[in-house]
Design a protein around this nucleic acid. Sequence first.
DNA 1: CATGAATGAGTCTTCATTCAT
DNA 2: CATGAATGAAGACTCATTCAT
Lengths: 217, 217, 217, 217
Amino acid sequence: MAARPTSLGPSPGIAAADDDRPAAQRAERRRQILLAAKQVFADEGYHGASINQIIERAQIARGTFYLYFESKAFVFDAILDQAMAELRARITRIEVEDPAAAPPPVQLRDNLVRTLEYVVGDRALASILLTSGKAAEPEAIDRLAGFFGEVRSLIARALEQGIEMRLVRPCHTQLTAAALLGTVRGVIEFLVTSPSPPHVDETVNELIAVALRGVLA
Amino acid sequence: MAARPTSLGPSPGIAAADDDRPAAQRAERRRQILLAAKQVFADEGYHGASINQIIERAQIARGTFYLYFESKAFVFDAILDQAMAELRARITRIEVEDPAAAPPPVQLRDNLVRTLEYVVGDRALASILLTSGKAAEPEAIDRLAGFFGEVRSLIARALEQGIEMRLVRPCHTQLTAAALLGTVRGVIEFLVTSPSPPHVDETVNELIAVALRGVLA
Amino acid sequence: MAARPTSLGPSPGIAAADDDRPAAQRAERRRQILLAAKQVFADEGYHGASINQIIERAQIARGTFYLYFESKAFVFDAILDQAMAELRARITRIEVEDPAAAPPPVQLRDNLVRTLEYVVGDRALASILLTSGKAAEPEAIDRLAGFFGEVRSLIARALEQGIEMRLVRPCHTQLTAAALLGTVRGVIEFLVTSPSPPHVDETVNELIAVALRGVLA
Amino acid sequence: MAARPTSLGPSPGIAAADDDRPAAQRAERRRQILLAAKQVFADEGYHGASINQIIERAQIARGTFYLYFESKAFVFDAILDQAMAELRARITRIEVEDPAAAPPPVQLRDNLVRTLEYVVGDRALASILLTSGKAAEPEAIDRLAGFFGEVRSLIARALEQGIEMRLVRPCHTQLTAAALLGTVRGVIEFLVTSPSPPHVDETVNELIAVALRGVLA
DNA sequence: CATGAATGAGTCTTCATTCAT
DNA sequence: CATGAATGAAGACTCATTCAT
């Protein structure tokens, strides 16, 4: 990625170059394939995507693909893994007791901003996450369902805590968590689909407003 | 169904019979195939579903399928058409000016109850509507997107009217409509997925509460 | 196989025809594919044979092949099964105690004649049996090895009995059985390979002579 | 093997060194590849063997393989050549007229002992010779068939001479030669397959006994 | 109308071979 | 010389669709 433009030959660097080029190249290739695959999966869905489309987009030969990924299912998994890891890193539990932490509303806002920014920055990925719920290999479907389950649980917990603290009105927390998760997904879909979407910041404001206070005046 | 050994062709019965039996039989067969196809599409997604699975479930021969539907894409379209028609019939614009109409909140509630009841009664269909957003034939995808676009517009209009009437706080109506649509989808997913989902009535109460007043106390 | 030359259409036979044609046709097709496959496997070996070659020889489309056999391995198995069944039916244990049975040397001779006649009548099959010992799917290899093991045991038993009865000189029965089995295989190979092989009868005479009395004057 | 950091090219050492080391290294590498290939071919058959397996076993890089052998077919040929050469060197025509030679029975015995010892010492090779009769490149198949043809001719000649000298009973020499060759192959297979095979010496005794005098008492 | 055998384009995957480093 | 990334032809298998019966 950083790497100097192109190595000049097999000379193993004159002096201080602690990076091993071949490994870097390999990683680069991998990224290139992942990128192409991500776009194709986003456009066509898991079953609709063909290795042909992926290698055409990645500008590589058929065999090369299999040098980097065992199978179609494995690329898909890799994409999912990466996405879920990135999202997990962006979604943190809201801390209410730690006085050193930011106030909960700010934490909530930060979570949303981080998440939406990542997702908007990678529309293909968003599309995959949003639409692969049924159309993939059973194992991948389960992993995805598990992920969304986690997120929903996180929201449900936050609601429960909020209720305890009298910040949130009593409600069916499971159902409401599902509803709120849907809200976020709806917003993401809008951001990703819209030709001229509003800024993430503004979007988050609206999202939080709806979630916390609804639409009534 | 009603039998008579074998119909001799499309000739509509002998004389005085206000129903033409063969046509009824034909329609029945069609429904039978649609039902099977719906379940298969729901389980496997568009590309994952195979004609084999459909005809096995429908207990018909391969050729028979093509007697009733031109292609796999056409059955899918038929399912989508039916679903969208049913939903359109259940979702009515909220009438604010007609004094004969029920008060808007009641209209909203009725819309939601009708919709959720239909969807919960046909989980396979719900699953298809919720997950076929990307994984189908482009044309079907467009139609589906169009449908959800319609619904979102409906919500957006309702919001605009509400704002005019000072019932709804000013907001980015497009975005908020997307958010609310997402909320409904989230709730539907919960209903359809949950092993022991709450009653539709209670669900709608919660849904409306979140949508109108948010989660804050 | 017996079947009348070609059916004249869908007319289900005028009167007495208790055979169900479709099943017969299906069996016929199956035989046709088995025949083609047998020849290809004989010419190219298991791994060298391609479905392409088989369907070209059988004059059928690619998909048709898979209508009759699950996979390449399955056709091969079917061929092996048939061959082993036929051979098992032709190789009977030599009965020494039953006075109603033919004298042992005659039984031996009959066994050999039956076996060689079958094998010579189906060279492709002989070739497969003789050369697929290593080059096939492990499971098939095992089955084949098991079969030859059976035959060798049969020979070894016969030798033991012969030794008890003082007809056969004492020897390492296992090793000698292997040697004799090899002798038979060598003869079969000769028969199958030779452009103008001797008659089976004469061949069996020579074979028995070598096996019983060796080559010394 | 002998090392020296890295040879600088094909230049043959400094000066006075009657062996040119690089060539020796090259030969060594070649042997290493041949060894690996032999084992793989023995385990998997010609078509079943892959370059991958060979280079893994030989612990060399993919390209290196092609530095020593033009293709898969060529390694196989090399193996066959070597084996056939070794065997040819061990199988000598039986000399009946030269009074200086050992008596014919001893010559026969020596031939067999030498051959079996070689073969037992290299099971992989035995396996290849015994089972590659059909499953290889046509050219190799022909060469192998030619080799066995030679051996058979040798045996046939010996039989003819024996008949002339009244040592051997009159028989169809071609057929009997094939039978005897089969006998030897059967014994070899037994030796190679058996978990606890008898000593070569004992084996040869039995083999000769069967071949010369048969199994009768 | 119903059937299901037949088709062949298309899918995923492997593997012998080449070549820049 | 050695390496191993890259290639693409070819293989096994699937599946939507057609058509004779």
